[in-house]
Design a protein around this nucleic acid. Structure first.
Length: 420
RNA sequence: CGGGCUAUGGCGCAGUUGGUAGCGCGCUUCGUUCGGGACGAAGAGGUCGCGAGUUCGAGUCUCGCUAGCCCGACCA
């Protein structure tokens, strides 16, 4: 992509009311645009990042054997009445229609997925089944905040699993836990697995995946030795423990961003929708369900929170909008300028042919502006061509997360780029 | 939903005791620049969030509303 053609622009000043790093840099860099409190449009650079995150999740879900579907965002009121959540879920957006009907705007999809899967599942032989989707969810939060972290419309992956036995469910639940840790790691994020209360939702198993960050809303309790963590909401305020019961170490209290949450739903939803199956003995059996969510847009925000400096974002390679930010600096010497143009264009074309994702700053802008934008946008590798570097028949090679730069000979650039 | 702050050009801001709106960035044109957000010159761009009220006169004062941000509560 040529930066001169990218319709979004970076901004020299961040929005005054952006306090969190994710809001500041995502907006300043032109990754997202805020439409309303808690509602964002995703622009070309931001959407590329979001797609990469989604594709990592997709790969891991597929490896788990889950099947991707896409469910409706508009949902029938009747289904929400069946589970009793039409009135009990306060964040539910209720959408009126011209015909005096009302719809729910999906904050989650149990009400859709349960009867949907039930339509096709009749025998224990059909199980287990796992389906997932990645799409927008809507929650009428009383207070949207912290940029992309808590929105009223946001991206989410949700996975639902269906099992004939508790043992099978727990086995799958454990697998998802491992996959989640791996998947977040692939996105450049370390998570703490935290035991959580399922709230009014379920009294059974529930775990959260927390990113330790001051931008977080939750307080998690971590034992530094055994790596055991709990959400502080689990603690009865009158009975806060100071030390880990297992090893005696003093607990650490840290703020965390919840980017994933998994639940053992039991038979709650299957019962509500009367989804049953025939077991080996020819008896009707209840189906057990698990659900496993990841906030995709929040995950992008979390990456920014844990990976930035005072100049901008430092994207992990796996989710960066482009792998390479190619910067061309001008020369006052016309002859040298011709060579700079030629080598830049050539390098840009060749890198693309090699399958390298390149953002080329071909603008007629000052060096300062170009370098500042490269830092703000935060692609992992900056390749710079200028009069100086061409004197050495080289380009400057600098990784966003590192201070040092080095020269790479023009004829070695392609070879070197294979290793990024 | 309670409390607080804010609302002036695309963005960031100033605007005094009320007198009819200005700066920086960005944008357009021309010229000079070119390794950490260059400079000069000439331009374009604003019903001052919305609605009432007070006043000869309101960006400025009063009331109402709306929106955004922050704290809290809430967060299947």
């Amino acid at each position: 992509m040529r930066l001169s053609r990218l319709f979004t622009k970076t901004s020299k000043s961040a929005p005054a009311d952006a306090e969190t790093a994710n809001a500041k840099y995502l907006i300043q860099g032109g990754f997202v645009h805020q439409e309303m409190a808690g509602v964002y449009s995703w622009l070309p650079l931001g959407l590329r990042v979001l797609h990469k995150v989604e594709n990592i999740i997709r790969e891991e879900m597929d490896k788990l054997g889950a099947q991707e579907i896409r469910m409706s965002a508009l949902q029938p009121k009747e289904s929400w009445e069946i589970t009793g959540r039409w009135n009990s879920m306060d964040v539910l957006f209720k959408v009126p229609s011209q015909t005096n009907k009302e719809y729910a705007l999906g904050p989650t999809h149990e009400e859709i997925v349960t009867p949907l899967v039930g339509l096709f599942i009749h025998s224990y032989k059909d199980l287990p089944v796992a389906v997932y989707q990645i799409q927008s969810k809507f929650r009428d939060e009383l207070r949207a905040k912290s940029g992309v972290m808590r929105g009223r419309e946001f991206g989410m992956k949700d996975l639902y699993s269906f099992h004939a036995t508790q043992g099978d469910l727990e086995n799958f639940y454990g697998k998802v836990m491992d996959v989640y840790i791996k998947l977040f790691h692939r996105c450049g994020i370390d998570t703490k697995v935290v035991e959580a209360s399922g709230g009014p939702f379920t009294k059974k198993l529930s775990h959260e995946f927390q990113v330790v960050s001051d931008a977080g809303e939750d307080v998690i309790v971590i034992c530094p030795k055994c790596e055991v963590a709990q959400n502080s909401e689990m603690f009865d305020p009158g009975a806060v423990k100071k030390n880990c019961p297992t090893c005696g170490s003093a607990y650490e209290y840290k703020k965390g961003i919840e980017i994933g949450n998994i639940f053992d739903l039991g038979s709650k939803f299957a019962d509500a929708f009367k989804v049953q199956l025939m077991d080996e003995a020819g008896e009707r059996q209840t189906i057990l369900m698990g659900c496993y969510g990841i906030g995709t847009t929040r995950l992008v925000g979390s990456i920014v929170e844990v990976s930035h400096d005072e100049r901008g974002i430092i994207w992990p390679k796996s989710v960066a909008p482009y792998a390479v930010h190619l910067v061309t600096l001008k020369s006052k010497d016309a002859e040298i300028q011709d060579r700079i143009d030629e080598e830049s264009e050539d390098l840009y074309d060749t890198l693309i042919k090699e399958g390298v994702e390149v953002l080329w700053d071909d603008r007629d802008a000052s060096p300062g502006e170009k370098l500042a934008d490269a830092d703000l946008i935060g692609c992992p590798l900056r390749i710079l061509i200028s009069e100086k570097t061409l004197k050495e028949d080289s380009v400057e090679w600098k990784f966003r997360g590192e201070k040092e730069m080095r020269l790479v000979n023009l004829r070695d650039v392609i070879e070197e780029s294979r290793s990024i």
